[in-house]
């Protein structure tokens, strides 16, 4: 098997001139290229009859045979590779949005997860609000029942979902509030706080902030 296609590639570098030669005058380098890189014999007729060439070629072929055997081994990617890659791709594409703030000397891009972090921290700064970070918490499978002790982000992601288009962002935030507080007012405070913080810190306009209250918990419970 020769693994190097293309006839124009056949001469070994430096094979034309000097280098070691067999007693018959054949270049050792040429014979080497012939065996290992599929180069065409310089003088096929001579090789067929020359004992020096034939012995040397036989030695080289035997030496190189295991290389060709290894190269010919069929290698297949592990079965789970495609799935693993695509799972990561889908996870990524959920959070790879950028907000773009055009400026006179170049534009500023703000990654969606930055916007998400700002929104989350803004919401958390409102009294009586706790927000879920997916990290060490139990995630709620789609259609599953939320764990009453936890509020869950999406599959170990933050609870803040962000869509960004140009300088306008849509924030979808999930919060937990202390038991007993007036939820509509708290949600309104969260909305206002997120809009304020986003504007101050990123220069982005929140055109929509959807607040979902997913849990209540007794006051003073650690997150």
């Amino acid at each position: 098997m020769t693994a190097v296609p293309g006839n124009e590639e056949n001469a070994a570098p430096g094979g034309a001139g000097g280098g070691d030669r067999l007693p018959c005058g054949a270049s050792v380098d040429d014979l080497f290229a012939q065996v290992t890189a599929g180069a065409r014999p310089r003088d096929a007729d001579h090789q067929r009859t020359c004992p020096h060439c034939r012995a040397h070629l036989a030695e080289l072929q035997e030496l190189w045979a295991p290389v060709e055997a290894l190269a010919a081994e069929e290698v297949r990617a592990p079965a789970g590779l495609l799935q693993a890659v695509m799972a990561q791709v889908r996870e990524l594409s959920r959070h790879t949005w950028y907000a773009v703030l055009p400026g006179p000397t170049g534009s500023t891009r703000v990654a969606a997860r930055v916007v998400g972090a700002v929104a989350r921290l803004a919401a958390e700064s409102v009294p009586h609000v706790t927000l879920a970070l997916g990290g060490g918490h139990t995630a709620t499978p789609p259609g599953g029942t939320p764990d009453p002790d936890r509020i869950a982000g999406q599959e170990s992601e933050s609870a803040t979902d962000v869509g960004v288009a140009g300088t306008r962002v849509v924030v979808d935030v999930q919060i937990a509030v202390d038991y007993g507080v007036p939820i509509p007012q708290v949600a309104e405070q969260v909305r206002a706080q997120i809009i304020r913080h986003l504007d101050a810190q990123t220069g982005l306009t929140a055109s929509e902030v959807d607040v979902t209250v997913v849990d209540v918990r007794p006051p003073g419970t650690a997150r």
Partner: peptide, 27 residues
């Protein structure tokens, strides 16, 4: 080249070197 069947030209493009350099290094 030997294991993946790339030409020297392709190998050079992959490695960011010239076709000639790919050939010399493979050799």
């Amino acid at each position: 080249t030997t294991f993946s069947g790339c030409t020297y030209g392709e190998t050079g493009r992959i490695l960011g070197i010239s076709e000639g350099a790919a050939k010399v290094r493979a050799h």
